[in-house]
Amino acid sequence: MPFDYHRPATLEEAWRLAAADPEARFVAGGTDVMVRIREGKITPRALISLSRISDLARIAIGPTVVIGAGVRVAELERNASIRHALPVLSQAAALLGSTQIRNVATLGGNLCNASPCADLAPPLLVHDARARIATVSGAREIPLATFFVGPRASVLAPGEVLSAVVVDPPAPTARAVFLKQGRVRMDIALASLAVLLETDGQRCTRARVAAGSLGPCPMRLTETEAILTSGTLDDATLARARAAAESEVRPISDVRAGADYRRHLAGALLERAVRSLLNGAER
């Protein structure tokens, strides 16, 4: 179906367009929105492209890391500052879609699509990232963990725009890794897991575990985190953490995989991630 296409240069202009047409929809790279339009799943009367708004495409590394929502996935994969500050995000970016998709898809699009399998969500969740939401009346920041409210649903109200993701710099001892299981390499995750650990000798002082495709939205596995930090991080603790991860996730069975396999993957990927972090293979 035909639709109008707007390409504002500023957020203010975007808001004016959105106010004028309540049925218009924001779009960035379009790699999700266009697919859904073609499949007839959504029929917006107009698209408001955010890709010309240069403010949204900035990366600022200062006291905090601020990544504009319009930053391309390929940029997250290759940008030296991001690779240095948040290597786990680059790692996940490199596993998202194909080269062509990564060249147009954006960070904000991946998050706002709010798919349970969003590859960029788990690595940001383990960094306690905040979502910066811009509205006509000003900006606010909320924890990314509360941004997702269900499959393809976020907290964004009409007219609100995810403008950036903000991350406090990780502690010097923090290490994180992202693991993803697909049917082939270029695939939607059947299950994905990001794990961040801060360790002090044999003890894990801080743990963050976030899962993709293992529940209605990208989610933190807080019980698993608690076990990982409960004492000496030995095989027994890891086994308990693995069991916790398997019971904490809420996977579904669909055409891609069964819930049992996904549940198994939650544990398998957790153990693999933790072991690789403890072996120092990742930073």
């Binding site: 049917r183 082939v184 390499r185 270029m186 695939d187 939607i188 055409v255 891609r256």
Partner: peptide
């Protein structure tokens, strides 16, 4: 290793390359 047209009561469930996987250069 990968391919299968999945059906439920006669309806094809995976009518796209999103869910019908063929090997790529990586595989």
């Amino acid at each position: 290793l990968y391919e299968e047209v999945k059906t439920h009561e006669g309806r094809v469930l995976n009518p796209s390359f999103t869910d019908y996987k063929i090997p790529t250069a990586h595989e």
